[in-house]
Write a protein that binds this DNA or RNA. Structure first.
Length: 496
RNA sequence: GCCCUCAUCGUCUAGGGGACCAGGACGUAGCCCUUUCAAGGCUAAGACCGGGGUUCGAAUCCCCGUGAGGGCACCA
């Protein structure tokens, strides 16, 4: 039997990082077993549907590289993959349940239910629906039908005994059936609830394994009994550990914004990670390390290498926070492994977005040294400011600041003039030639015979930044003319 | 209130009865390297929630506490 798993988000906004983790684990599991990964949209609650959300979900999944074999955009033999387009099927099977005495019509109104729930809450108990419509006499039922009252269809859940969930990650979980609610299966608007839709779809779509978050454990007994009522075989269950807020309190939510220990807001939507300059490979790598580990003490790995080692049994059941610090480190590692050209190309859209014009050659010149410096693609902004900001910081540079204890003011001036003359004429104007010539100039002007102090002064003069890429690369990126301009204005500071 | 889940350094984790005075990673601190910032190398501090069992032996198994989390919708 081939493995078939699904990721079934509801289109209420964007892809949540916790959802991405669930999707990733499903995807890895499918790929490992040569099975299918299915995307299904659970939009049976029209009140919560958000326009454009399906597209956003797909974009985020694609950005992460989690390709689905069946689902919106790609089709498949078990479609449609959007639940609102399958309404008739759910109605049909709810009817079947009714006919076979596994369900009943409930005429309680939403308001009545709400009031009873409030009363339960006031009594500091919360048992859920009291099953009153389950025990309506035939006469009472007939009367309500005659009145044409709207109704929902509820599951006739078992009351006695226990239900056992066989969870691959947690082992056997036994739940008293008294805990299983007579859940609403079909709402009064004729659409199914999650419970019905998910069971019907999973069955007809041939889903073999359900990997979903821990928060679903409590409804698993209901689902198991629904499968039993239908006479269908249950899939294998694996409940993934919950992703918590950075504080460790509560699950990470995209609605309530999350903050870390320093009070900084934390990223939650996948698109936020993308916009913040994280690489999809790094995000996958990061997610794979949360609740699962590669083994061999290896933290950084391409997801493709994780696939053959991935086993549900190895997933750590404990709820977890996301180690955002580690994501920064991992992302830096991934950036470090990029080819300079690749990095330059990745950087371009980020610079464009900020309206910074940087030539391809300049970017390429500086890419090798940027590789080991960036944690996020957005960090490039600070390092490269000197490339687009000709006037910026001019004011903060003075002749005094351009001196150094190993390179006093007059020597600093002379060294910069020498550098100017050298840069004006050097051929070829490339990294190695510049490095050799400027190092010699530096050694000749400092009191300790080392180029270091001079290079610091040169950096300040040319980039007007205390922190910049290495100075030779910076000069190459700037180009001969602009570098000379910077030196000229630095030298002019001595004549003020 | 009822039910369910979980519990190893600050954080993410390895650990499946002796190989553990508990390993790795991030973060933190120090040193080295060094043209800034990084990266890299080395070093350091840092954990088995508590109590009972079982066993010759427990981080590992069982029980009870405690703590944290989840669920108890005509939301998923």
């Amino acid at each position: 039997m081939t493995v078939r798993v699904r990721f079934a988000p509801s289109p209420t906004g964007y892809l949540h990082i916790g959802g991405a983790r669930t999707a990733l684990y499903n995807w890895m599991f499918a790929r490992k077993h040569g099975g299918q990964f299915i995307l299904r949209i659970e939009d049976t609650d029209q009140k919560r549907a958000v326009k454009g959300a399906v597209q956003a979900l797909m974009d985020a999944l694609r950005w992460l590289g989690l390709d689905w074999d069946e689902g919106p955009g790609v089709g498949g033999p078990y479609g449609p993959y959007i639940q609102s387009e399958r309404a008739e099927l759910y109605r049909q099977w709810a009817g079947w349940l009714l006919d076979h005495d596994h369900a009943y019509k409930c005429y309680c109104t939403a308001d009545e239910l709400k009031a009873r729930r409030a009363a339960q809450k006031a009594a500091r108990s919360d048992q859920g629906y009291d099953r009153r419509c389950r025990y309506l006499t035939p006469e009472e039922r007939a009367a309500r039908e005659r009145d044409g009252l709207p109704y929902t269809i509820r599951f006739k859940a078992p009351i006695e005994g226990v239900t056992v969930i066989h969870d691959v990650i947690r082992g056997e979980i036994t739940v008293p059936n008294s805990q299983i609610a007579d859940a609403v299966l079909l709402k009064s608007d004729g659409l199914p609830t999650y419970h019905l839709a998910n069971v019907v779809d999973d069955h007809f779509m041939g889903i073999t394994h359900i990997l979903r978050a821990d928060e679903w454990i409590n409804s698993a007994p209901l689902h198991i009994n629904l499968y039993a009522a239908f006479g269908w075989e249950n899939p294998v269950y694996a409940h993934l550990p919950l992703v918590l807020n950075p504080s460790g309190r509560g699950k990470l939510s995209k609605r309530a914004q999350a903050f870390d220990d320093h009070g900084h807001q934390v990223l939650v939507k996948v698109e936020e990670f993308r916009d913040a300059g994280y690489l999809p490979q790094a995000v996958n790598n990061f997610l794979a390390n949360v609740g699962w580990s590669f083994g061999d003490d290896r933290e950084k790995f391409p997801i493709e290498e994780a696939i053959p080692r991935f086993r549900l049994e190895d997933i750590n059941p404990a709820p977890t926070r996301l180690p955002y610090d580690k994501l920064d480190w991992l992302n830096g590692q991934w950036i470090q492994d990029m080819e300079p050209l690749e990095l330059a190309q990745a950087l371009k859209p980020f610079l464009d977005r900020q309206g910074h014009e940087v030539g391809a050659e300049a970017l390429l010149a500086v890419a090798p040294s940027l590789r080991v410096r960036l944690k996020k693609l957005t960090d490039a902004d600070d390092f490269l400011r000197f490339l687009w900001d000709d006037e910026g910081n001019t004011g903060v540079i003075t002749a005094e600041r351009l001196a150094h204890n190993k390179l006093p003011s007059d020597a600093a001036l002379r060294s910069l003039q020498a550098a100017r003359d050298f840069i004006a004429t050097v051929q070829p104007f490339d990294l190695d030639t510049l490095a050799a010539g400027l190092t010699t100039i530096g050694e000749a002007h400092t009191t300790n015979g080392k180029a270091g102090p001079f290079l610091g002064v040169l950096r300040l003069a040319v980039t007007r930044q205390d922190v910049s890429p290495p100075v030779f690369e910076s000069i190459v990126a700037l180009g001969r003319e602009r570098a000379l301009g910077r030196l000229d204005s630095a030298i002019a500071l001595w004549h003020k």
